[in-house]
Simulated assay, not measured.
Amino acid sequence: MAQLRRTSMADQAADALLERLHAGEWQLGAKLPGETTLARQLGVGRTTVREAIRQLAGRGVLTSRQGAGVFVTALDVREDWGEVLDGADIAAVLEARIAIETEAAALAARRRTPVQLRAIRRALEGRVRHDLDIEQHVDADTTFHRAIVLAAGNPVLLELFDGFTPRLRQAMIDLLRMRAEFGSADDQQAHTGLADAIADHDPAAAGERSRIHLTGLLEELG
């Protein structure tokens, strides 16, 4: 692995970690290797790695959990519109999800490849683990929905979704805490139906199932 030689080592280390995220080395919710391992891989000191992680945490990409490690919370950085997203309430986040994901689901039903369908199915299975806490469930759920957006084959939709993920993640955690339950059989069935519509190349059904699911979440807010 190439080592870093430019002056601003913390900045370059942050860029290198972000490139590895973009390349798919770590999925949403994944735990990063320890500082010692990352420092050895990048050819820098642990202090530099720590500063790079701090930078990416400030940009909404990583989060440090006391006693647990550093985890991926987004697959791309927030740009200037991050301030707008940070101020959005849960209803606004859900409305944005409807706008992005309903169209993405319909496009995915038209364009998905066999490889992308397998990724959607794997992510669907990841939602049903019984040992997930709320944050882990939201990360697994977001991985499923991102796999659909990726299968839509529209880079603008994917960029919007990735930039939107940090605020989406927190909004969904807040919503599930209010509901006091998550991961029900009915919820999983709704997601299975969405995946099935995409598998069947049925854009109308895929878009409608996405809209029904997300509208249902919005209606819960009253």
Rank of each mutant, 00 (worst) to 15 (best):
D196Y: 04
T142C: 10
Q188F: 12
L168R: 14
I148N: 03
A205H: 11
G183K: 03
F144I: 07
E135S: 12
V138N: 05
S210Q: 09
I173C: 13
L158G: 10
R211H: 05
A199Q: 10
R177P: 00
D196K: 01
F182R: 07
L176G: 14
R169M: 01
R177L: 09
E208T: 13
E208M: 11
R209E: 13
G216V: 07
D196H: 05
Q188L: 15
P155Y: 08
M172R: 13
T165V: 07
L194H: 07
I173M: 15
L175T: 02
D141F: 03
A206V: 05
A171Y: 08
E181Q: 11
Q136I: 07
E159A: 12
R177T: 06
Q189S: 09
E159C: 04
V149Y: 08
D174A: 08
R129T: 14
T142N: 14
I148P: 14
D186K: 00
E208Y: 05
P166R: 13
N154I: 06
R169F: 00
F144N: 03
R211M: 02
D174Y: 00
G193F: 06
E159T: 14
T143Y: 04
L218Q: 04
I134M: 08
A147R: 09
D200Q: 07
H201Y: 08
L194T: 06
T165E: 01
L158R: 06
H130L: 13
F182Q: 01
S210K: 08
T192H: 06
L176C: 10
V128Y: 13
T192C: 03
H137C: 03
A190E: 15
M178V: 15
D196N: 05
Q170M: 11
A204K: 12
M172N: 12
D162G: 06
Q170D: 13
V156I: 14
G153S: 08
R129H: 14
F164R: 10
A171R: 14
D186F: 01
V149R: 02
I198L: 02
H191T: 02
D141G: 05
I173E: 09
F161W: 07
A185G: 08
D139N: 10
L160V: 12
D202P: 12
R167F: 01
D162L: 06
G207S: 11
R169D: 00
L157K: 00
D139R: 15
D200I: 00
A204Y: 10
P203T: 04
G207Q: 02
H213W: 09
L168P: 00
I198A: 00
V156P: 04
A197G: 15
I148D: 00
L157V: 04
V128G: 01
A171V: 11
